[in-house]
């Protein structure tokens, strides 16, 4: 317990403060810098890697990392650095699309369940329970078998994995906000149900959803890469991180960089996204 009684001014011991300040947050800074680089790679890949990710020089195949080819070359002589940079756009846009679809579908379900209540709530939430029960990647694979390969299909398949979590969070928030006095006041003011939902319920319920969506992004990057690795995402020769790891396996013994570099890119991006979204989540709470 704090003893803050003294004749001279005494600072309360920091141990009981709301949050103890530790040293500079190196991890967070690194994560932010990495995400910035990834963003550059997504929007202006030519700034980081002016070369063509698809053009290979067969004579220069499977070169180890060197001053000329920073991260070496692949089995048809394409520069790996250029391909990883250009691949960021495909992987990230698929992941973002997946999260966007997940948020849209999940919040529609959550809102429906939270507002309608009764039998609708029960049915929707049992469907969500089923979605939760099936492992996300298995669900995605099953969906892709039905939908066929391709970027949009992968995005949808991945989004289904995040629907359940988002629906649950939004439903609980909507239930909480819906019974709050200010929503009752808005109802007495004569707001129609649609306006009540859009103006008074939803804006006050989405905050935790934003934090969750940021977290889901990290998971989505991983899932998109996993599906790319299995060959369901962007088709060759388009550069995609997961697919690049997969194709590098063939020469794992001789050319380690082919799997290691895109693999590390995935790991770094997932960790960075996770770290930054955790911070956002804490802020929003």
């Amino acid at each position: 317990m704090t003893v803050a009684l003294a004749k001279a001014p005494v600072e309360a011991p920091s141990g009981t403060g709301p949050r103890r300040r530790r040293g500079p947050r190196i991890g967070l800074a690194l994560a932010a810098v990495w995400l910035l680089v990834v963003a550059l790679a997504v929007f202006v890949p030519h700034l980081l890697a002016p070369g063509d990710p698809l053009a290979g020089v067969p004579a220069l195949k499977l070169q180890p990392p060197s001053a000329h080819h920073w991260w070496g070359t692949d089995e048809v002589g394409r520069d790996l650095y250029t391909r990883v940079v250009h691949g960021a756009g495909l992987t990230m846009s698929t992941a973002v699309l997946a999260v966007a679809m997940g948020v849209l579908l999940g919040s529609a379900l959550g809102l429906l369940a939270g507002l309608a209540g009764g039998i609708v709530d029960v049915v929707v939430m049992r469907v969500v329970d089923v979605l939760f029960a099936v492992p996300g990647i298995l669900l995605s694979l099953a969906l892709i078998t039905v939908l066929g390969a391709g970027t949009a299909a992968v995005a949808f398949a991945v989004s289904v994995g995040s629907i359940a979590g988002i629906a649950r969070v939004l439903r609980s928030e909507v239930l909480k906000v819906r019974t709050s006095p200010y929503v009752e006041a808005a109802q007495v003011s004569g707001n129609r149900p649609l306006r009540l939902t859009l103006r008074h319920v939803l804006p006050n319920a989405v905050t935790p959803l934003l934090a969750l969506a940021a977290l889901e992004l990290a998971a989505a990057i991983l899932s998109v890469s996993a599906l790319g690795f299995l060959g369901y995402g962007a088709q060759p020769p388009a550069p995609e991180w997961g697919a690049m790891v997969a194709s590098g396996r063939d020469s794992l013994r001789t050319a380690w960089w082919l799997t290691t570099v895109p693999g590390l890119a995935i790991v770094a991006t997932v960790l960075a996204a996770n770290r930054v979204s955790l911070l956002g989540g804490r802020r929003l709470r």
């Binding site: 003893v3 803050a4 009684l5 004749k7 001014p9 005494v10 309360a12 011991p13 403060g17 709301p18």
Partner: peptide, 12 residues
């Protein structure tokens, strides 16, 4: 009670 919260300072 000697239970001032953290952040409170007795100045005199």
């Amino acid at each position: 009670l000697g239970l001032l919260p953290a952040g409170a300072t007795v100045t005199a």
